[in-house]
Nucleic acid binder design. Structure first.
Lengths: 344, 344
DNA sequence: ATTGGCGCTCCGTCCCGGCGAGTGCTGGCG
DNA sequence: CGCCAGCACTCGCCGGGACGGAGCGCCAAT
């Protein structure tokens, strides 16, 4: 009677599955009566109730109050996604549509559109962690805007472009600017800023002092530009969560959630953490360890460039979400993003 | 008795002012009793009621239901901001703080931070229309990413940077790329893409065909990059509106509002429209002509570069907002943005 | 082991009445 | 004629009580 703490016979699993599916479908607590019809098993409501009582004891389901039906707990969802869920992969047509939505013009657009696609397809919030950059640059360029005002343009190793305005102490001529850029491009492309700064002191003693100063200023600005835009998380369609009744009933919860969205760093930690695993990963309710998310699930997948993981995509929605749909969407989006970035 | 349709004697104005101020302060309908204490006038509630009845007839105030106090109508607010309101300008300290929050590293950051500052200071939604660009470019550059894959970098006349990936049919050598960039920079910097495309056909017949093809491709991509990023509106802190009780009670209204935020173009029209006027402009409730905004006010001000209006900043909040604070904030932000952009 | 039946618990809804706030009106006063 | 005290009236906002429905747990019968 008491040693079924771990075991879960087939019947119980079937019923749990039916219950979760039903609850996901219409959001109402599921009663024994409804379950007896749905499950496919030929059992009376009374028998079902016994099983449900067991499931409740084991912590898979719970009743919101004495006489409502049962609702899956976080643990129930966990078991569901781990062993009961059957995901049907997206068909070709859907994948093509999805791919068509990605804007490949440049990295920023790509990331933004990926996030947007996730939110559109799931009608929840889409998140994408921007790709980690390697430390160096591929190309650097100066452009004179005004007397003592330069525009620094910097192409990262990944092929996206940063820019920054630099104030200088003296006015450099266009040819000086070209020269400085050439030196940097020819000798130091691909090195980390840290490294360059060390080497430049030693190697360029023969240069005029003002040139060295220009270059150090440029390197500082470049370093800052790259590190500042380092890792960020792009969130789309947070507004969709307003339309989710599970969440929009708790106005306060909702506010906490949106506050979390503003504090990017916290979210970043969670998503970064998940980029160590491979494949789709799911955090249900408090598993994420973030209180504002305790009625939410986060479905994530890492994406890569040339086989190296550089970021994470994901969806944030209510625990009561259609996992069998969301999971493949996140999975495919990560793969499409990987391949779009790898062609660079 | 009936010909005060337009006139509004001093007493009525004073009472209207007191009523609006009180209502803005605590959001409760204001009764005659409260008003008699607040107004400063030595009048009994009964007399006040007479005046209030007149104000109601004239459409300045209304009662939510038979026996609540009165609430300003859109027309009431309008009269209030037009003739009763006394704005106190921000003091130096606040202006300095505000200025410190603007991130001048580049145009995108500047615009984003301006929008953010607006939302932080007012605790409503901040909006900024990105600066209109002139049609041409200042500098153009090609960078080879892979065999048939180029990165096009384009600095606009305003000094900000666009980038775009171009697929080419043949593989160009680095020196060819430099040559093409030089031709474009030396001959056509500052011209509109339209104009260049016309001239290039005529003037460059002597060039090899593949060079012309490269340049036309670059021009097309550049044109697209510039026109696509043409005018957009950056919204910050829309979430703040969740915390505004006036709005968060009507879940549906709120959703409509956020939908509006997603449809940037509609908002853009409104804000563009307002950039024709000069100085701070206010749209109260339905004055904006947008149904989702009928319980909101929009406070806007145009900003300029070198004396030419190029965009608009603004705040979107509930009609019940502290206009005397919001107006100077929007005003100053527009001015700071103007001066930050003009120094380029 | 399964099941029908019974009693119980709890939620959601509706209805009702009291309370408080605020109004409109009237008649009296300076 | 302007002002004001008083009064009756109208609503919205609770809080309490009744009712129907859904669902459960338990038990006895099969």
């Amino acid at each position: 009677m008491a040693n079924e703490t771990q075991a879960l016979n087939e019947r119980a699993q079937l019923l749990l599955k039916a219950l979760v599916e039903r609850y996901i479908a219409d959001g109402q607590p599921v009663g024994s009566r409804a379950l007896s019809k749905l499950s496919g098993l030929d059992l009376s409501p009374a028998s079902i109730r016994n099983v449900m009582a067991d499931l409740e004891d084991m912590g898979f389901i719970a009743s919101p109050h004495t006489s409502a039906g049962r609702v899956p707990t976080a643990r129930g969802y966990r078991f569901f996604v781990d062993t009961l869920l059957t995901v049907k992969p997206l068909d070709r047509v859907e994948i093509n549509q999805l791919e068509g939505q990605l804007q490949v013009e440049n990295t920023q657009k790509l990331v933004a559109s990926a996030s947007h696609v996730l939110s559109e397809l799931t009608r929840f919030a889409g998140v994408v962690v921007t790709p980690r950059r390697s430390a160096g640059f591929r190309h650097i360029e100066f452009l004179k805007l005004a007397e003592k005002r330069l525009l620094l343009i910097l192409v990262t190793a990944e092929g996206d472009v940063q820019n920054r305005i630099i104030q200088t102490e003296k006015s450099y001529s266009p040819s000086e600017l070209v020269e400085a850029a050439n030196i940097l491009n020819q000798n130091y492309a691909g090195c980390s800023f840290e490294e360059i700064r060390r080497r430049i002191q030693a190697e360029l003693r023969q240069l005029r002092e003002d040139m060295t100063r220009l270059m150090t200023a440029a390197l500082a600005a470049g370093d800052q530009a790259v590190s500042e835009s380092a890792e960020d998380v792009v969130i789309s369609g947070g507004i969709n969560l307003l339309g989710v009744d599970d969440l929009s009933s708790n106005m306060n919860k909702l506010r906490e959630l949106f506050n979390l969205f503003e504090h990017r760093t916290t979210l970043l930690q969670l998503l970064d953490h998940s980029s160590r695993a491979q494949g789709v990963q799911i955090f249900i309710g408090n598993e994420a360890g973030l209180q504002p998310l305790d009625e939410c699930s986060v479905v994530t997948a890492p994406y890569e460039v040339d086989g190296r993981v550089v970021g994470t995509v994901g969806v944030i929605g209510p625990t009561r979400m259609a996992y069998e749909r969301v999971i493949p969407i996140v999975d495919i989006t990560a793969k499409l993003l990987s391949s779009a970035l790898t062609q660079r």
